[in-house]
Each structure stands twice: as C-alpha cells, then as structure tokens.
Design a protein around this nucleic acid. Sequence first.
DNA 1: TTTTTCTCCGCAAAGCTTTGCGAAAACCTT
DNA 2: AAGGTTTTCGCAAAGCTTTGCGGAGAAAAA
Lengths: 339, 339
Amino acid sequence: MGKRHISLKDLAQELGVSISTVSRALKNHPDISPEMTKKIKALAEERNYTPNPLAMGLLRQQTKMIGVIVPDINTHFYSSIISGIEKVAKEHGYFIVITSSNESLEKEIESVENLIKSRVEGFIVCLSQETNSYTHFEKLIKNEIPLVFFDRVSEELDVPAVLADGQDATKKIIQHFYNNGCKRIAYISGPEHLNISENRKIGYLNGLNECGLPYDKKLLVHCNLSIEDAKQATRKLLRLKNKPDAIFGMNDTIAFAAMIEVKKQGYKIPDDISLAGFTDEFHSIVVDPPLTSVSHPTFKMGEEAANLFFESIEKGTANNKKIMLPIDLVVRESSVKKN
Amino acid sequence: MGKRHISLKDLAQELGVSISTVSRALKNHPDISPEMTKKIKALAEERNYTPNPLAMGLLRQQTKMIGVIVPDINTHFYSSIISGIEKVAKEHGYFIVITSSNESLEKEIESVENLIKSRVEGFIVCLSQETNSYTHFEKLIKNEIPLVFFDRVSEELDVPAVLADGQDATKKIIQHFYNNGCKRIAYISGPEHLNISENRKIGYLNGLNECGLPYDKKLLVHCNLSIEDAKQATRKLLRLKNKPDAIFGMNDTIAFAAMIEVKKQGYKIPDDISLAGFTDEFHSIVVDPPLTSVSHPTFKMGEEAANLFFESIEKGTANNKKIMLPIDLVVRESSVKKN
DNA sequence: TTTTTCTCCGCAAAGCTTTGCGAAAACCTT
DNA sequence: AAGGTTTTCGCAAAGCTTTGCGGAGAAAAA
C-alpha cells in the first residue's frame, strides 16, 4: 500500500504552528523568524518531507508531463531519441510519458486522447507510417497545446519540428556509390506519403542527376517498413533483367532485410551489389560486411525536439521553428568494391 | 499554454446546479433524477469533460504511476520488456515512468529518490550492473512500497521477481555444442555478483559435467557489459595456447563483440570456433553467420513483472512470488559445424 | 389537515499547497 | 504613556473531485 507521504499539515501539527508558516519557512520567506525557519527545516529534513506534486499540479494547473508518441519503441532509433528527450525533460523538471502508435493511425489518435486525459502539458511526436489525416493534431493546435514533431512531419501542419537532412545524406550516398563505380543504383523507399521517403527520393534524383546517371524508375521501389515487405522489395529488384549494382535502403530494417536477401541469393557484397543504409553505428558494425550508412543523430534529435518543446511552452505559441540536423556519411566495407 | 480543462464546476455553473449534482449524475447515482442526469451528461459530452487526474489522485492518494528502472533503455532487450510492462499497466489504467540507471548504482539510487518524490505507487526494476548495496530498496520495503524485480535480482532481498531460466538455457547450449563436436567450450560471463552471471555459470558447469567435459577455468572469463571489454575478453580466450572451439556469450553485446573479434582474427565461424549467445531474434538473423541463441522471452517478462506488481499492489504486501520463465534454444548456423 | 416518507439536490470536508490579507504582539518614538 | 512600526504568524480561498449528511419540497398515508 505504501504509507502516506508526510505533508505540511503533519509538520505543522507536530510543531504546533500553522500550515502557512511551515510552507513559508521552507522557502525562506522573510516573514518567518530565523529560529522558526530553522526548526521547521530541521523537522522537514528529518521527516523527509517532499512537496506533493499532485497538490502543486492542481494549484498551478500543470502536470510537468510531456506526452511522447513514437511509431515503435522497440528499435534503437526511437529509444535513442527518447533518451535525448528524457535528458532535457529531466533538466526542466519534467518527465515523459511514452506511448507507441505501432505505426497505426488509429492507435496514434487513441494515444493523443489518452494523453490529453492524463493532462500532459504538450506533445512530442513522430508520425506513424499510416498517418494521412491530421484532425487529432489540429485540435491540439487550436487549443494551443504545445506540439512538436521530429523526423516524420506533415506538410499540411505548420508545427515546430526537428528533421534530419535525409535529402543531402541520400545525395552523398549516391555520389559515393558513383565514385565507386556503380551505375545502376536502386533505392528502396518507405511509404510515399511520408516526408522522409520523399525527401530522400529528391536526394536520390538529385544525386543521380549530378552524377550524370539516368533515372530508371524500375530501380525505385517502395515498401512498408516491415522486414518481410522489405525483403519482397529486394527480390523485386533482383528479378530485374537489368539488375542494380547498388542498393540504398531507407532505414535500418530495410537495409538489413536487403542484406539478408542479397546474400541469400548468392550475390557478393559489395562486389556484385554495393549496399548502404540509414542506421546507427552498433548495428552497422555487427553485420557482415559492415554496412556503409549515414549516422542519424538520434540522441541529438531527441534533445533538440525537447528544446523546441520548452521554447514553445515558455513563449506561448512559438514561431514554428524547424531545425535541420546534418547527417554524415560513414563509409564501411559494404559499398567499397575491391575490383 | 493550453486552455484550462473543463471542470465539474464549469458544468455546474452553466447548468445552475451544484457541483455534487453534476458529479453524481455523471456516475448514474440514483439520487439524481433521470432528466437531470441526461441533461448533465449531454453537456459533459459536448464540452468534452474528463475528470482531472490530479484532483482524483489527491483525493484517493494515488498517482497511477509505476516507476520503472532499467540499466539501459537503448537496447532491444529492455525496450521490449518495457513494452510488456506498458501493455499490462495500460490495462490497469496505470502509466509508467521510465528511467535508466546507465548501469550505475549512484544513478539507480537517484532514480529511486526522484520517483518517490514524483509519488509513483511502486517500482519495477532491473538492477544495475554495479548494484551491490541495497539500502535504497530496503527503504522501499520498510515503507511497504510495492517493488518487483526482473531478470537481475538480489539474493539478499526477498522481493517478488520474474526471472528467465538462464541456468537451464546455458546447459542446453553446452550440450548442443558438445553434440556438434565441441570439446573446449568457453564462457564469457558478466560481473560475478550479478545473479544472472552466476546462474549461467552453474548451467555452464552442469552442462560440462553432464557431457563429461573437464572444467578448464581458463575458459571462463568475465567482463563488464561493454562492447570493448567483451572484445578484450574474447582476445584473452584467443590468445590461449589451447584455444576454445566454442564460445558462449552471456548477452547480446558480448556475443556480437565476440563475433566481431573472432572474425577479425581470421577464424571461421562455426568451423574453427562455434558461437552462441543470449539475444533476440532480429539481431541473431542479421549477423553473419546467423547466431545460435536462446530466445529470451522479453515481452513476456515485462508482462509478468507488471502482473506481479499489480498483485502486490492489490493484496498489500504479497507473498514474494518468483516466476521462472523457460528459455528455448534456437539453433542457427553459428554453431553447426559443417565438417 | 397533519404527519410520514420519499425524491432530489446542496453543503462541506478532505486531500495538499501557495499566497494575499488581516491581526496580534512586540518594539520604538515622542 | 500613547500612538505608530515592525515582526511574526494564521485565516481562508483557490485548484478539482468525491461522498456522508442534512434539508427542502412533494407525494403519500393517516
């Protein structure tokens, strides 16, 4: 059950003074005499008094909670971002309530409603894969509830957001492939309505263009973000009469699925087919061959998202600032052909 | 800023009735006439009223929050367990506040204190690697604050806990190695004071014994759970004049670190050295060769931990039940020698 | 008509904290 | 000694909900 926490009332009774006196003493109010203050503080210390956050919340109308909605909590990508959010939240005396939409619009809407009921003071969210309707977020904006997006954003909503420069990173990868002798570079993308898919597509096309490579639309395939669908997409590429000599996968799951499938069909990486993905260091190193990838600044992304959140909570409805994080290319064996 | 939420008072004023009437109507109290009830409910619906959890919490002396402390939030292992906890917490109308100890005792203690200040109703925790002192938990027990452990537990504390049968799983792995012709099986363990390290050590010794293999203490090495230290431990094994022909790594990080190091030194897996680890499916499949491992029932573990928590919150101080989850061996290429 | 019995609703307290304002006591000033 | 200041503290309200108890009015019984 847990014994009741000690309250100001308890202290006041024990000392035979009023609650207000105790409250003031604890915050060094000049109205209270030094001796009284000292006595009260000593008892508070001894009894291990800490103010009741519910009472404070009720009074100040704030819960010090941030609702965080991610598509999936079980990946390093999101858990690392969450760590970043949590760090700066803690610095501000806030804590975060995490929910997962499981890439489902329905669960995302449900999460927003539940968190509102819990009286979170605002939201930090990464859109689900399915999300193509935004009324649940528009409602938040109308009610001036702070909202910031990260990674996946909506073009339709003007909301503070932190993004990674996937367009530039993708271009770098294409150029890197080209410099290593690749001519037919494939791109396995995610759902088309996702901003990150489209950004990287632009980077892909720009990269091809700058390298003087033609755009073959057969080399651009889409998949939802499951490992099975990604393998399917890879097989589609490998069935082409005119096969790709390089594949770029839009995220962790896709890159690894592609790697598995390519190896399974007997192609050598990187000599037959070069490979690159969007992922973090640990996974890239563990696979064989080590995967060339871009280093997504996940922790930093979480920090920046939280910073944006506190800006908007402090300055009221903020200028819907967008932050673009640079992404670096990290070349490993999977894309450096030996012959 | 966020507009103020609607309260019973608002509804009462608008309807010209008392707050108590509104409150009762909303919960179908027989004292309120049907027409009045209907009118009130209609307005509540229209104004989108939801009860204020802070006020409720203050009244009932409960926050509906569970403090969860994990050594590390950035791994699939823990995030999957957290998902399990979160699922059953949500079913009970609770939400969870997650903090990471970063494998540090100091941060673990700090987390306990902060969560207590936040008035969580209890704790679900996995001990940090460093934890060898338990006063911060004894304090909880003394105050009858619900506490349940998972995976890593303390022998000194009698607390409800959910464990995985690492002893049995390790024995199975040793037997599997033996059946595949391995004679010198090494075990890279974690810190000695961790119950999971010791359990698996027992399984290791039992396994050797049952297979009629001698125990060579040089084949049992320890490391802390960092990737660098695990590589170091692997190198130590590979430097032996009488090298191992199989290596079992106690967790994800260790197994992968060993794999990297073994390959780096030019040994073939599994033909020169077989490998097996404790990890989850996704990672095991992605590496090359696919890693033989035991399937840690992470999600289930989280669910069971939360169940234990609610048992102890409902029945007061519960019978400190322990739940042992079975672990299955999943054989993949890394341990099946071809010659 | 008077008394009894329901029906339907409001008062107030409790849970905890902060803070404006009022008040008692002590001190100082002429 | 009398009026003025200062020091030191308490009352009460607000923030929101639940719930025991009491009360007003109406309907039913006598």
